[in-house]
Computed example of a mutant assay.
Amino acid sequence: MTAMAEELTMDGLGRLLQQRYDEAAEHIRLESQVRSELNVAQQGPGDIADAGSLASESAQHDLVSAALHEQLHRLEAALVRWQAGTLGTCETCDGRIPVGRLEIMPWATQCVPCQSAADRGR
């Protein structure tokens, strides 16, 4: 569902959040499974090149796993705000966050002007 095809309602946004949360949780489960398989492979016989390759793959999986966990945490926080009825309200100015922004970045906690000001202040 896109904002262009159909305006996203708050109920629709809640379903979208839950879908994205479920997808992120599944990606984490699959990543964990791959990690387990890598750990088993590291225990087997191999040469120094195999060890280096496995170490590199392991580091890449660490980065992917961290990003997936961060995304899951953000989506979970957005679901909590949705359930509380505060999703879509800017934490800085109490203004409305456009639904289109929430569709793209459902964990957004600030409207575009407040986020821009915060980014400039960094």
Score class of each variant (00 low, 15 high):
69 H>C: 08
120 R>G: 03
37 E>V: 10
14 G>Y: 02
92 T>C: 09
33 Q>N: 12
78 A>V: 06
77 A>H: 08
91 E>C: 00
11 D>V: 07
96 R>K: 11
25 A>D: 11
16 L>H: 12
29 R>D: 02
58 S>P: 03
110 Q>W: 07
20 R>Y: 09
64 V>W: 02
117 A>Y: 07
5 A>H: 11
42 Q>R: 15
29 R>G: 08
67 A>M: 09
32 S>Q: 14
13 L>Y: 07
65 S>L: 03
26 E>N: 11
98 P>H: 05
3 A>P: 08
91 E>A: 13
54 L>S: 10
38 L>K: 08
12 G>K: 00
61 H>Y: 03
10 M>P: 00
18 Q>C: 06
25 A>I: 02
34 V>P: 01
62 D>G: 03
54 L>A: 14
25 A>W: 02
120 R>H: 11
95 G>E: 02
76 E>W: 07
21 Y>C: 09
27 H>M: 12
71 Q>H: 06
65 S>H: 08
48 I>A: 15
119 D>C: 09
24 A>W: 02
45 P>V: 10
44 G>C: 11
104 I>W: 02
69 H>A: 10
85 G>D: 04
88 G>V: 03
112 V>R: 08
67 A>F: 00
18 Q>D: 15
46 G>F: 04
37 E>I: 10
89 T>N: 09
107 W>V: 01
13 L>H: 05
72 L>S: 12
12 G>Y: 00
91 E>S: 10
122 R>V: 12
85 G>L: 05
62 D>I: 01
6 E>Q: 14
18 Q>E: 15
